[in-house]
């Protein structure tokens, strides 16, 4: 299945890109497990994933959300608006 990952805030700089589309094995992959996949691809994420929240297709999701083909998963670091 194909999942697009979008990096927000300082994560963009950590991984050196705004977004990427990944071809992942079909089957039940949870958002939290996607985090592990991304950590392997981008070692700079290692110290940061524990404070990252995930959104899939514009809704916040828990780490056990099961990804579907075509999902857009956003990695949201700690926020600093206002």
């Amino acid at each position: 299945m194909r999942v697009t990952v979008v990096y927000y805030g300082g994560l963009k700089q950590d991984v050196g890109m705004r977004s990427e589309t990944l071809e992942l094995p079909d089957g039940a992959l949870r958002v939290g497990e996607l985090g592990e996949v991304l950590r392997e691809r981008h070692p700079a994420l290692a110290g940061r994933l524990h404070t990252v929240a995930y959104a899939v297709n514009d809704a916040l999701v828990d780490a056990d959300y099961v990804l579907q083909d075509g999902d857009e998963a956003s990695l949201l670091p700690p926020v600093s608006g206002g």
């Binding site: 805030g9 300082g10 700089q13 404070t51 929240a53 916040l60 828990d62 949201l76 670091p77 700690p78 926020v79 600093s80």
Partner: peptide
Amino acid sequence: RYLDGVPLTHTA
């Protein structure tokens, strides 16, 4: 630099 912020909770 990006500022350190508040981790997003799911308690919207």
